[in-house]
Design a protein around this nucleic acid. Structure first.
Lengths: 130, 130
DNA sequence: ACAGTTACTTGTTTTTTACAAGTGGCTATA
DNA sequence: TATAGCCACTTGTAAAAAACAAGTAACTGT
């Protein structure tokens, strides 16, 4: 993936963020990871119905960008579980603000579990360690 | 544009937010509006170089979604200036969190003017009234 | 041996984005 | 009064990305 600021459209931090995670699916996957999902099938079964090839390609990109890491959870065949890195967990405040905004302006959308608005990026990483 | 939650992929507030503003350009335009830009040419001259047809179509969408309003600033020919609504101004915290994230993880990106991190959505609307 | 599960990949169509060029309504200059 | 220029777009087309459908590999369990 992108490495130096030279390769971005501009050096504006907002614009760079959008090039990294500003598509329709990346943050949906990050949301699922925040909620403790970790396997391919978990992401696929989310209500939004992400196409399987898009899911595979986003997981690859997120890994390349250091937002997730994958770790084998079984052999024969080797299968990987995905987790947020610190960089990925630090996207939580972005998600939380997006949720606050939608709740304020889109009537009839769901309220996420209370824990979601209370948790911090550090909590996500600590949960991982146990 | 979309009106009821029926039409979204899911009722998850995060997913809905991404359907409304989760593309590569909408938040770049919102950023410019936060910085006081208001005319078509202002947006076009931003360093990211948004294609002109995309700009026109995004302004239309943002208006349909109640994030911006346009007001004529001259006659013969009638020309419109664009401004954030309350709904649009309330995206500021999202932008601010995205900026914090990028600053932390992408070396060498720019630091926005100090005012950007200190301002509130209310400030943006008050500025508009004067 | 055969059905089922999981995590993908491959091929094709549809949609979105990008790039280049053109248009309409005016103003200012020669 | 031609003509050049500016501004805010629109139109046409090519390239890229997303969506959809199907298939594959490596197992497990019956």
């Amino acid at each position: 993936m992108k490495k130096t600021t030279e390769e971005y459209r501009s050096k504006c931090p907002l614009s760079i963020a959008l090039e990294l995670i500003g598509d329709k699916w990346s943050l949906v996957i990050v949301r699922d990871l925040c909620m403790g999902k970790s396997k391919y099938g978990d992401f696929q079964s989310s209500p939004e119905g992400i196409p399987t090839n898009i899911l595979a390609s986003r997981l690859r990109q997120l890994e390349e960008n250091g937002i997730v890491i994958k770790e084998p959870y079984q052999d024969r065949p080797t299968r990987y579980a995905y987790f947020l890195t610190e960089k990925g967990a630090d996207l939580l405040p972005v998600l939380q603000q997006l949720v606050i905004w939608t709740q304020k302006y889109v009537p009839d959308c769901l309220t996420p579990p209370e824990i979601f608005s209370q948790i911090t990026p550090q909590d996500l990483l600590r949960k991982r360690e146990r």
